[in-house]
């Protein structure tokens, strides 16, 4: 499934770019992210608990940052697998300065498998959009904070 959209992050482009690649910020912003642990350059092991009303599932996966072009674009690849299925999101994020901050455009694909693919296709698009929205909302909130992140967020 293809996804695309954009959000306004109310900080300058450079800072937006840094925030979006900061594992601490990512860990706090990605919905359900429990832990994010560095396993290589721009690569992190992630544990996630997705909760959507009654639906919940534990996922074990990876977050990867690639094709980074400071401060204009990079690819964010998030994948996870658990008992209820697996998912993989691969998106190109493009940053452009606009009035009031930075416009972050995203374009990419979401793949799912297992039970969530078999029974969830009706809700996949809605859910993906909702998760992305939550991510940017959290990111915006993070960007408003002092920037002094607690190092214990990364285990």
């Amino acid at each position: 499934m293809k996804i695309s959209g954009s959000f306004l992050v109310p900080v300058p482009q450079e800072r937006a770019f840094r925030l979006l690649q900061d594992p601490v910020v990512l860990a706090r912003s990605m919905p359900g992210c429990d832990t994010l642990e560095r396993i290589g350059d721009n690569e992190y092991h992630m544990k996630m608990k997705m909760v959507l009303a009654s639906i919940s599932g534990l996922f074990d996966g990876k977050v990867r940052i690639a094709d980074s072009r400071p401060h204009s674009s990079f690819r964010l690849i998030v994948e996870g697998a658990g008992r209820i299925g697996f998912m993989k999101g691969d998106g190109l994020l493009t940053l452009t300065p606009v009035e009031g901050g930075t416009n972050v455009g995203y374009e990419g694909t979401v793949e799912v498998g297992g039970t969530i693919a078999a029974v969830g296709q009706r809700l996949l698009d809605t859910t993906a959009r909702m998760m992305i929205k939550r991510f940017f909302e959290k990111l915006t909130a993070e960007s408003a904070s002092s920037g002094a992140f607690s190092p214990t967020a990364i285990l």
Partner: peptide, 14 residues
């Protein structure tokens, strides 16, 4: 099926 071979119409709800 999606491109990766996942059956999207995988239950009687779809």
């Amino acid at each position: 099926y999606d491109e990766n071979g996942q059956l999207l119409s995988g239950e009687l709800t779809d």
